[in-house]
Design a protein around this nucleic acid. Sequence first.
DNA 1: CAGAAAATGGATTGTCCGATCCAGAAATAG
DNA 2: CTATTTCTGGATCGGACAATCCATTTTCTG
Lengths: 232, 232
Amino acid sequence: MSAKRLTAKGEATRHRIVVAAAQLMYEQGISDTTMEDMRAATGASSSQIYHYFADKQALLLAVIDYQTGAVLDLQAPHLDHLDTISGLRAWRDLLVGNQKRLQCRGGCPIGTLGSQTAETNPEARLAVASGYLRWENAIRAGLTAMYSRGNLNGNPDDLALALLTALQGGLLMTKIHRDVRPLEVALDTVLDRISSLSRTLPAVTTNRGRGGRTDRRLSAASTLIEQTFTSG
Amino acid sequence: MSAKRLTAKGEATRHRIVVAAAQLMYEQGISDTTMEDMRAATGASSSQIYHYFADKQALLLAVIDYQTGAVLDLQAPHLDHLDTISGLRAWRDLLVGNQKRLQCRGGCPIGTLGSQTAETNPEARLAVASGYLRWENAIRAGLTAMYSRGNLNGNPDDLALALLTALQGGLLMTKIHRDVRPLEVALDTVLDRISSLSRTLPAVTTNRGRGGRTDRRLSAASTLIEQTFTSG
DNA sequence: CAGAAAATGGATTGTCCGATCCAGAAATAG
DNA sequence: CTATTTCTGGATCGGACAATCCATTTTCTG
């Protein structure tokens, strides 16, 4: 609301504070991140923080906004190619690889903020929900394109939401178990579902019995579906 | 570790404290729940809490244990019947109905604890992970039974994990959006996947195009899969 | 070059919170 | 009945925390 006038220097300081706050809140949670923590992390003074943010709540809202952008930026190169199975698989690989790189720590920057605020901070909850909608829209755009081309025999809205939701659950379980498998399995299961509803020939990771997660043979079922679509 | 001797009265007081702490931590988060909050909620005195629990951490661990039991108890009637599609759907209806009853508030009691502790509290993280394993095992037992009967053409371990993970993501998104749809769609998508890998004739909720989430007709693909399984 | 506005430094304040302490009451065991 | 253990009450302490205040420096503007 307050359209404060900011110097280039002021803008930089404000940004430094938001970035540091985002990182700290991501690592230790919102309540356990003190103003002093952020002050120390930025090398700023207490009054600087309160110069740019009315209170901790205002800073939190700025963090939510920043993290939403950061999450979408990270995926930006892939978000325009979610209209093919291979594009979806590449996106999946990015997300899984990213968690491996982080040693399965942290989870989703947006999800952790949402989880902490949903019940006690309506303003923050709405900001997070709005961030999720931007994300969901990007995924939906890809699946809708598939659908419009006639390459997806299912509801693209539902499948987009299912993908994002599986991703969120996968990130949560992965950080709790310190194991990337939940994320892999969650995404692969929904992607396999999408593949099975797709008329294009997918590199199916469908499991045929135990231990078959890395099996890349086409399943009989998928083959039949393929035949159905191409002959119908 | 400390095998303290407890009177019946003492046991009751201890239990009251755990239940109140669980509820408060569920509603306002761990850090934002103070010892004074719990003291007031139970009508106990400060020294009573510290008589039964060494510190807040010990109380938290008791809460995690309690919530794990509560979550499993709630589903107990259904957990023995997750070896058929209809049993799985009934379980899904319980979970969805429960969230509706709660007006989409709160999310998963275990997940919220895990999300808050995973990065900063190794002991709590392991306790939550252990709780999830119990839950996952129950689901896996059902799918493994299906698999053993030859009614599931997929990896039951992966599908069980996918189900639980979809549930967790669904609960998170549902509480943030205050809308039960993410939970419904997340579970239905994985259940549809399981149905499509099942040789029994499912009441498929597969979507055929937009707006088809409530469509219960059998899809051509499912019919073909069915024929494949029964003729092979 | 003024004068105004923005940015910074650092001490301070009042409150809250986890934890401790010292009793005394109630229950149990011998 | 009495000694011992368990249970309860409530005051209190030291530290941490969000937020405020006032002064000073730096940057912008006309």
